[in-house]
Design a protein around this nucleic acid. Structure first.
Length: 873
RNA sequence: GGGCGAUUAACUCAGUUGGUUCAGAGUGCCUCCCUUACAAGGAGGAAGUCGGGGGUUCGAGUCCCUCAUUGCCCA
């Protein structure tokens, strides 16, 4: 045999991917077919493929390929995200390694380096996706900083500003004192740490010796205290309402205010309020109109407000101030305390909350249609449990801080002409800004009078437009493409970006196109290692997907990541799953190898082959309905498993074994032709999961004018449940025979005789199949009592394999007695149920009928076993 | 602290409205077999009081309460 014994993915993968591209199968243009659109969650432009991408993109490809085969105009838009923070960090790091500091560069110089970096590393990930088999329309590759995309981002900013939905305000940001920049919430890691809770006493103004005890984890911020807050209902402090208090170590006095926010149980029930250094304090400060005193320099040392601690680092101050407070009689006690502290993901510095002027989007109105249309099911979440989380977030939505103190990204189109907080205009270009500002000021100004905002926009402020802007839906409203492809169909993404991205795309969709951006959202899980840890680069526990593809083939890896990954559940990944996938590819390959090895002759078709074909046709149709249903419900892993069993168990273990001619015997033409036909259908349903091996076999198996990738998904034509159940009875008979062989240690080559009493309804086709699969010399009915034999019961018919003296009568008797006992126990339980009047009266009739049938079956079985026992010598 | 989930075989998971597709699948494990597609294989097998405890019901893996363990999101 010239065909290799195992499937070699390498050649097929390269060949077919190139072929598909050359034929342009993945390219889509609007036509009169129904569109099926998916936009890729754009990976970071400088990213490399990790296991999360593998899972995510395999699912998208499965959905896209199936839709394409269903005759839809499938369009999968690829692209990348500029990922401002991540990319800028990488560029800064790279420059640093070359001895260049970002601070020494101008904005233009830095951006030059950034684009250079992007051109070099950008899009590697897209090339890697091709290895996976992703059938994206590569002509439509987008980047969030492309010219027209950027325009739409700026347009949206200007538009929302003009609608009053974007405003500028003070807010607490996460300040990284090492990197000297604000970082986003996503870049702050909260860790549980052991710290200390300091109990400090503050003297009440106007009293000789009245003190208030306050618990704090940050005594160094005492210099920024601008109030003491107690719960208004706290009886301990009611007498102090409206009074003032001295701040220790300073000559300042501050008011005592009341707020429900204070937890009576925590610490002493008195909270010192430092509005400049804690987000909650800040909010209380706003409410009670308190001053903000910032006591820190940007590098985390204290400033002049820190008095004699000026210039000393915050943590050092904490140590020293503990000593001073103690010496001066302010410190009452110190307790150990566990709390959560935010650390910078990049520098590991403790994050300092800092007040600054930022840009915000008012989310209230935007969120309303977005919430409504998920809750009412117009946009479906899979699995639906995520609706709850979504609702909770949307109902408590906060304004969105969209400015970032970075250079890489879309620069905020705000232009300042003065120092006042309102001395600015928002405009798409500087030219427009000049005009708007001139009008506003009532005098003509020039370019050099304007200074553009230094900050860029949050990355999500561009990616929330992704499903719209990849079709230029904003820059060219109502163009043919946006009208055709939008709303898109399915979005496949991770639950952790449900708020950052999914929710905001929905908002943008309703705000700008008055329409949902996608109909279904499939949430994948997190890929974890065997120990349950999230796979990450820093842990080094993530296998390189490209190496996996080399080792197991793209199809094998695709199967490996899908096989145990229900929607919304984490995927505990192990390379052994890819091995299973590779073995599956190989199984398919060998099925083909077997069929192709047969010599064809115009001989009569065996009855067993005829029934096998009839059965498999029905079996396939039944499986097809299951598959379609599973797809409709986005149960992709289960669909794969169903396909896997169809191939392995039904097609290979049963079908091919039944039709397989004897060694060096030819096969009849009819059976071979039918087999090729059936195999092709199998390849079709398997193609979305395993595109390469199926395309290869599709062409190897028979001459095909059309490629599998663009062939049509099998039609549903119905199936006959009767044929399926007759077959499973026959298969059960065969299994029983095999089992007896096993128990008796009789090899498969030894022919056995099988008799049965009563009437076997299978007909000659099944008889022929059973004879072949059981390797029987005799399979017939007998009226004679068979004495020493091994037996079994299928469908109420007693089967015997006579062995005469060879039978271990004792063992057979024991086996039968055990069965008898079980059946009797079963009968009793059924009869008990039927004897219960309340059951018979309240249960639906079909349930009662069923119990009656169970009773009859059990009685029959018992009589058969008893008869058999009587016949044993 | 607030919210949302999860707990079914050694592992990973199915289990629609309570009752035959109810105790399932794949992997792993055990036994036998290198049989003429595939040992990356074949045939067979064992394995779970459905997290604990209560309750509703003729009937609970499924509904309710409670406890335990655990995950995620937000603060």
């Amino acid at each position: 045999m010239s065909i290799t014994k195992t499937y070699d993915p390498k050649i097929a993968e390269e060949k077919w991917y190139a072929h598909w591209l050359e034929k342009g199968y993945f390219n889509s243009v609007p036509d009169d077919r129904e569109p099926f659109t998916v936009v890729i969650p754009p990976p970071n432009v400088t990213g490399v493929l990790h296991m999360g991408h593998m899972l995510n993109n395999t699912i998208q490809d499965v959905l896209i390929r199936r839709s394409r085969m269903q005759g839809k105009n499938a369009c999968w838009i690829p692209g990348t995200d500029h990922a401002s923070i991540a990319t800028e960090a990488k560029v800064v790091q790279k420059l640093k390694s070359e001895g260049v500091s970002k601070a020494d560069l101008s904005r233009e110089e830095f951006l030059g380096h950034a684009f250079e970096w992007k051109d070099k590393h950008g899009g590697i990930i897209l090339e890697q996706l091709k290895k996976l088999g992703a059938s994206c329309d590569w002509n439509r590759t987008h980047f969030t900083m492309d010219q027209s995309y950027s325009e739409s981002v700026i347009d949206v900013f200007v538009d929302l500003f003009n609608k009053g939905k974007i405003y500028r305000g003070v807010r607490m940001v996460n300040w990284d004192p090492d990197a000297l920049t604000a970082v986003s919430d996503e870049e702050v890691l909260h860790k549980e740490v052991n710290s200390k809770l300091f109990f400090v006493r503050y003297k009440v103004v106007g009293t000789q010796d009245e003190w208030l005890n306050i618990a704090t984890t940050r005594p160094e911020t005492i210099f920024g205290d601008t109030a003491i807050c107690v719960n208004p209902s706290d009886d301990r402090y009611k007498s102090l309402h409206g009074k003032s208090i001295h701040v220790p170590l300073t000559d300042r006095t501050i008011p005592i205010v009341t707020d429900e926010y204070v937890d009576v149980e925590f610490g002493t029930g008195c909270l010192k309020i430092t509005p400049a250094h804690d987000i909650n304090d800040y909010e209380i400060g706003v409410k009670h109109n308190l001053d903000n005193i910032n006591v820190f320099n940007d590098n985390g040392t204290l400033n002049a407000y820190g008095l004699h601690y000026e210039g000393i680092d915050r943590f050092e101050v904490r140590k020293q101030i503990e000593k001073e407070l103690n010496e001066k009689g302010y410190l009452i006690k110190v307790e150990d305390h566990q709390n959560k502290v935010g650390y910078s993901e990049r520098t590991n510095a403790v994050i300092e909350p800092k007040l600054s002027l930022q840009w915000f989007v008012n989310m209230k109105e935007l969120s309303e249609p977005a919430l409504e249309n998920v809750m009412n099911g117009k946009i479906q979440f899979h699995p639906s449990k995520f609706k709850n989380t979504y609702r909770h977030w949307m109902e408590n939505i906060k304004d969105w801080c969209i400015s970032r103190q970075l250079w890489w990204g879309h620069r905020i189109p705000a232009f300042y002409y003065g120092k006042g907080t309102n001395d600015f205009v928002v405009a798409k270009t500087i030219e427009e800004a000049i005009e708007v500002a001139s009008n506003k000021l009532g005098k003509s100004i020039t370019k050099k009078d304007l200074r553009q905002d230094e900050d860029v926009l949050d990355t999500w402020f561009s990616s929330w437009l992704w499903p719209i802007s990849v079709f230029d839906g904003l820059t060219k409203p109502n163009n043919e493409e946006i009208n055709y492809y939008y709303p898109t169909n399915d979005l496949v993404t991770a639950p952790e970006i449900m708020f950052f991205w999914v929710a905001r795309m929905i908002m943008a969709g309703y705000e700008y196109l008055d329409e949902l951006p996608f109909r279904n959202v499939y949430f994948t899980g997190i890929v974890r290692d065997k120990l349950g840890r999230k796979m990450s680069k820093s842990l080094g526990n993530s296998p390189d997907p490209i190496e996996l593809i080399h080792k197991f083939g793209a199809d094998g890896v695709r199967v490996g990541v899908l096989i145990s990954s229900p929607a919304g559940n984490d995927l505990p990944f192990d390379t052994s799953q890819c091995e299973q996938g590779r073995n599956f590819s190989n199984k398919l390959w060998n099925a083909y190898r077997l069929i192709s090895s047969w010599e064809v002759k115009d001989i009569e078709q065996p009855a067993s082959s005829a029934i096998a074909i009839d059965w498999f046709k029905n079996k396939f149709q039944k499986t097809l309905t299951e598959l379609n249903e599973l797809y409709d419900n986005y149960k992709i892993s289960e669909a794969l498993m169903v396909s896997y069993k169809l191939v392995w168990d039904d097609f290979c273990s049963w079908y091919l074994e039944i039709i397989k001619p004897g060694y060096q015997h030819p096969i009849d033409r009819k059976t071979l032709e039918q087999s090729v036909f059936l195999f092709n259908d199998v390849l079709k349903v398997l193609h979305p999961f395993m595109p390469f091996v199926t395309e290869e076999l599709w062409h190897q198996l028979s001459d095909q004018k059309e490629d599998l990738v663009v062939s049509s998904w099998p039609d549903f034509s119905g199936f006959d449940e009767g044929v399926l159940s007759s077959f499973s009875s026959a298969a059960e008979i065969v299994s029983n025979v095999r089992n007896i062989r096993k128990q008796q240690s009789i090899g498969g080559k030894v022919k056995l005789e099988l008799f049965y009493s009563g009437k076997y309804m299978g007909g000659k086709e099944f008889t022929s199949m059973i004879r072949k699969m059981g390797n029987l010399s005799v399979f017939e009915s007998t009226a004679e009592k068979i004495g020493n034999s091994n037996g079994f019961i299928v469908d109420g018919i007693q089967f015997y394999i006579p062995f005469g003296d060879a039978v271990d009568v004792k063992a057979e008797r024991a086996k039968l007695e055990q069965e008898l006992e079980y059946s009797k126990g079963f009968l009793i339980s059924v009869q008990k149920k039927l004897g219960n009047e309340r059951f018979v009266n309240s249960a639906p009739t079909n349930v009662v009928e069923n119990e009656k049938k169970k009773q009859a079956d059990a009685l029959l079985k018992i009589s058969l076993i008893e008869e058999k026992l009587g016949n044993l010598n």
